[in-house]
Write a protein that binds this DNA or RNA. Structure first.
Lengths: 338, 338
DNA sequence: TAGCGTTGTTGAAACGCTTCGACGATTCCG
DNA sequence: CGGAATCGTCGAAGCGTTTCAACAACGCTA
C-alpha cells in the first residue's frame, strides 16, 4: 500500500502538504493541490485509518449498540440501524455494531478509542449501561429515555403525546370505551420507558376525554395475541376502539378479531403505533401513529455529530407523533352523525 | 488515558514486557506477569486500538456488508447479523457494519486497513462487489454463491439439496402435483443464486420422483401472496402440495389458502423454507426446511478466522438442509394408507 | 525602503503500540 | 566443569499519520 510519503514524493512536496490537502486545514495553492491529487489518484493512496486515529485521536467511527436478539421488533430495529448507518455516512463516519448484551464492549470501544461516539438503542428506565457511557470520554446519544440521563442526549418518539393523540382520535370519533394492547409482559417488566410513557399519555387523555381505557399486555405470538383479544372481549365487551402498540402481535390481533366476528374498520376501530410500512402491510391499511424509526436513527446521528464538533450541551428531543387515518378506524357508538 | 508506558513504569518493567504480557507472544515469569497485571488493573489501562493497528497491521475488526433496505427478509438478515457479530466476539473481533449499496465502502475499509477481513451477504450470481473484494488484501467470505467466486470462500444453505428434499418429502407422502411459491420477481431478476439453485433441485427431484411442479414468483405483500395462490389454484387445480420459499409472503399465503377454503395440513400440504422461528410463528406449526441463518453467519466468521491465521485455501461450504415435519403437511392423494 | 502581515510550504515531533535482535542468567548435557 | 541451549527481559526501531512552530516569498502600508 502506498503511504502518504510516497504521495509526497510523487508530487514533489512535503508530507505535511499532502496531509493538508487531504484535511483542508491549511490553504494550499491550486497547482500544488492538483499535483497532490494526481499523485493520490495514480498511486491509489488511502490513508491508514489506524495511523490517522493515533495521530488525530479521531477514528471516524461511531458505535451503535442494538438489541440483536431475535424477537419482537426486528423490522423496527432494522430501521433504526439503517437510519444510523446511512446518516453516519453522510458525516463520513462508519458504524461499529455492538450487541445489547455485550456490556463490556462499551468499555472496550470507548477505553480503546475505537470510536468517536456512541448511539445506544432500547434504553430501559434504569439502564445499567447509562452510567457506564456517561463516564466515557466519547459523547453518547440514547434512543429512548432513561429515568436519569446523567447528562447524555436522548431522542425518541414522544410516546406520551402519541398516547394522547391515539385516545383523542378515538374519543372524537365517538368511542367511549377503548383499550390498549401493548408490549409483551417482559418488556413491561424491564420498565422500557416507552411503554410507560405511552400509558401515561393514554390515561391522562382518557380522563380528559371522558373515556374508559383498559390495558392488556400482549405476547407477540399468535396465541398471545388471541389471548389478549379474548380477554378483552370477555372482560370489557363494550370496547369499540383498540390501540395496538406491538408490531409483532398486530397481524395476529387482527386475525383474532376477524375470527371473533369483529369487522375491523366497521364495528371495531384499531389504531396501531408502528412504522408506516408495517401499518400498510396488514390485511387492511391501518390507521396508525407512525413510529419513524429510521428518522429517529438519523436524528441520533445528527445529535452525536453536533456534540462531536464543539461543546454543545446535551439535549433531549422527542419527536411529535403523527396520526394517519386509514381504513381500520371509524366512528364509534357516541358519534354525532350528520 | 493511561498508556502502556505508564503501566510499564508502575510495574517496574519495560514497555515490551507489558506488551508481551498482553499478547502472550513471549514467555513471561509468573511474578512479573502478576505485577504487570496489577498495574493494568490499577490504572484501568486499555490498549489504544489505533496504535495497535498501526504497529501490528491487525485491527481485530471485520466488516459485514448487509442489505439494510427495509423489505422482505428482515428477520432473516437480522439472524445472519447476529450470528456474525456474536461469533466474531468469540474471536475477540468487532464488526463494522456496511450497507449493501455502499460499494465504495469496500474500498474505504480495505484500502484504509480499517478491517482484517470481510463478510458479504446476499450475493448475486454476477455480483459487482465480488471482483472488488477479490482484489483486496483482506480475506473475504461470501454468504451466497456467485457464478464465479474468484477465489473467495463461500457459505450458504445447500438450496439445491433443499429443493430435492422438499419435493421428495411431498412425493413420498403421496403428492403427485406440487408447486413452488418463490421469491419476489425482482429477486429472481437479480439472479440471486439461491432462488435458482432451489429451483434446480426442485425440478431434478420432480423428474426423479415423477411429480409435476409448477413455479410461481410471489411478491411479499398480502395481495402478492393472494395473487400467487389464486393463480395456482386456477391454472393447476390438482396441486396438493406447495413449497413456500418467501418468509414475508408465508403468512399471507396461508391466509389466502384458508380464505379459499383449503385446510392446510389436511387437503393442502405446505412446506416452508425459512428459519425455524418463522415456521413456528405461523397460524399452525409449519413443516419446514430450516434456513439456519444464524449458523451460517457463524460459519462465515469461522471461515474468515481460518483464513486469517495461515494460508488456508479458499473453500465453499454448503450446509445440508434439514426438514422437520410439523402440522402443515400430510399424506397426498396417491398415498398408500395402511 | 523598512517593516509587517499574508499565504503557502516545510521539518520534525509526537501519537501508543508491536516486534526484532540482543543479552545476562539459568539450566542442561556430555 | 565448560560450552550450548533456553528463558525472561530489555532497548530501540519502526508503523503512517497529524499538527505545530517556523520560515521563505510576496505584496502592502507608511
Amino acid at each position: 500500500m502506498a503511504t502518504i510519503d510516497d504521495v509526497a514524493k510523487a508530487a514533489g512536496v512535503s508530507t505535511s502538504t499532502v496531509s493538508y490537502v487531504l484535511s483542508g486545514k491549511r490553504p494550499i495553492s491550486a497547482p500544488t493541490r492538483a499535483r497532490v491529487e494526481r499523485a493520490i489518484e495514480k498511486l491509489g493512496y488511502r490513508p491508514h485509518a489506524g495511523a490517522r486515529a493515533l495521530a488525530s485521536s479521531r477514528t471516524n467511527v461511531i458505535a451503535l449498540m442494538a438489541p440483536l436478539r431475535v424477537g419482537v421488533n426486528v423490522p423496527v430495529i432494522m430501521q433504526f440501524v439503517t437510519g444510523v448507518v446511512t446518516r453516519a455516512r453522510d458525516f463520513d463516519h462508519d458504524v461499529l455494531l455492538l450487541t445489547q448484551d455485550d456490556v463490556s464492549g462499551l468499555d472496550r470501544v470507548t477505553g480503546g478509542s475505537m470510536v468517536d461516539a456512541l448511539v445506544m438503542m432500547d434504553i430501559e428506565a434504569d439502564d445499567p449501561r447509562v452510567p457506564l457511557v456517561a463516564a466515557a470520554k466519547q459523547p453518547t446519544v440514547l434512543i429512548g429515555l432513561p429515568q436519569d440521563p446523567e447528562g447524555l442526549s436522548c431522542v425518541d418518539l414522544d410516546f406520551e403525546a402519541a398516547g394522547r393523540v391515539a385516545v383523542r382520535h378515538l374519543a372524537t370519533s365517538g368511542h367511549t370505551d377503548v383499550a390498549l394492547i401493548g408490549s409483551p409482559p417482559e418488556v413491561l417488566q424491564r420498565h422500557t420507558s416507552y411503554a410507560e410513557r405511552l400509558m401515561r399519555g393514554l390515561r391522562n387523555q382518557a380522563k380528559t376525554s371522558g373515556v374508559t381505557v383498559k390495558v392488556e399486555a400482549c405476547d407477540s405470538s399468535p396465541s398471545g395475541a388471541a389471548t389478549a383479544v379474548d380477554t378483552l372481549l370477555a372482560t370489557a365487551p363494550d370496547i369499540t376502539g383498540i390501540i395496538v402498540h406491538n408490531e409483532g402481535a398486530l397481524p395476529h390481533v387482527l386475525s383474532r378479531l376477524a375470527e371473533r366476528g369483529r369487522v375491523v374498520g366497521t364495528d371495531m376501530s384499531v389504531v396501531a403505533v408502528c412504522p408506516t410500512d408495517v401499518a400498510l402491510s396488514q390485511r387492511i391499511p391501518m390507521t396508525s401513529i407512525d413510529l419513524p424509526a429510521e428518522d429517529i436513527g438519523k436524528v441520533a446521528v445528527d445529535m452525536v455529530m453536533t456534540r462531536l464538533e464543539g461543546e454543545h450541551p446535551s439535549e433531549t428531543r422527542l419527536l411529535a407523533p403523527v396520526l394517519t387515518e386509514r381504513e381500520s378506524s371509524a366512528h364509534g357508538p357516541a358519534a354525532v352523525v350528520d
